[in-house]
Design a protein around this nucleic acid. Structure first.
Lengths: 185, 185
DNA sequence: CAAGTAAAATAACAAGTGTTATAAAGGCTG
DNA sequence: CAGCCTTTATAACACTTGTTATTTTACTTG
């Protein structure tokens, strides 16, 4: 009936995502995606109405990518929020451009930080109930404080103003948890 | 001997700075600066070799602007680092684009966060010695922790994930200081 | 195998960018 | 007042962007 499709949505999205990962979405242009995918710009606009729609797809993929990143991240911390925080900070260091896309840049069509963290798995909810089970009086408040701290460390890695090792970071987060708990009681 | 200069460095810089403040430097183009300054693009390139040089000038002005912002900011906090932190967070909320330019975006020709904070007035050094005078054992470590926390809150305001009032923020910072001090001793 | 149809490639358009060549303007010095 | 020299304006160049016409390609169905 018609010509067979050779360039798929997946190929376009994967290419755009890989480029975003390496250089940030601002460097993702229709022509550059096409060149890297080995086609013209036409298949891109067949599959996505415009570049904004491609941005959305990349954003969603990045959100899923972070969820996977956290899922397989080693659990070395004992206190609540620490493992999520460790993964978050490592993600900021190792996936600068994705971190920026998800958690730093403002703009339309963007989820809240809480939504991105919680994900489909309910990561935050789980950690909060863990804190509650551990006898914490106001676990939501504790999460807020911990997350401000964790987000600060993560953002500082982007600009090179934070450069502690994994072990040091783990220690820092555990200590901070204790500190926040101590003054809350 | 020659035609009188009508468009000065100051006019160009002030225009570019105002535009950066309102919409971020990414929207500052030669033609738009010219239009707003009421001239052609020519005076811009007489005064600055290229747009990168203009960026540098805007960056320096932003750094000075932050120093002024902190200098006239009300001192409601008692603990060390709190007043600097309050000004920092307010700056992030009220001057989003300048904050982003100075403290969020990575790139060449950028000062470290410490340098920007400390400034010519030695703000950080002063606060650290205050903490020492107050009997703190490791004031540099305390500054690090406090600043991670403060930077986190500031960055969250950019994305709309932090939205506490001035009073609540003041309370939060004071409490955090106590918390960090408590576990350090 | 011919026809039709969807996908892909080519090429173009309009807009915007930094930067520069050229022309006009204007003020000081002789 | 004439000449000169710098500043400014105008216009152009070369390039990149998103997006869209138009043409070519290739597959499936009659």
């Amino acid at each position: 009936m018609a010509r067979k499709e050779t360039i798929t949505v997946q190929m376009i999205l994967d290419t755009a995502f890989a480029m975003t990962r390496e250089e940030g979405f601002s460097h993702v242009t229709a022509r550059r995606v096409a060149a890297r995918a080995g086609c013209s710009t036409q298949p891109i606009f067949r599959v996505y109405k415009n570049m904004d729609e491609l941005w959305n797809a990349v954003y969603e993929k990045a959100a899923d990518f972070f969820q996977d990143y956290y899922r397989i991240y080693p659990r070395l911390g004992k206190a609540p929020f620490v493992n999520l925080g460790m993964a978050y900070i490592a993600f900021a260091r190792e996936e600068k451009h994705l971190f920026e896309l998800l958690f730093v840049t403002a703009g339309p069509g963007r989820r809240s930080m809480y939504e991105l963290l919680n994900g489909a798995a309910g990561n935050v909810v789980r950690e909060i109930s863990q804190a509650k089970a551990a006898g914490c009086t106001d676990p939501s408040d504790l999460f807020m404080k911990m997350w401000i701290f964790i987000h600060g460390a993560a953002c500082m890695t982007l600009t090179g103003d934070y450069d502690l090792s994994e072990v040091q970071t783990l220690n820092l987060l555990e200590k901070s948890y204790q500190a926040f708990v101590a003054v809350n009681q």
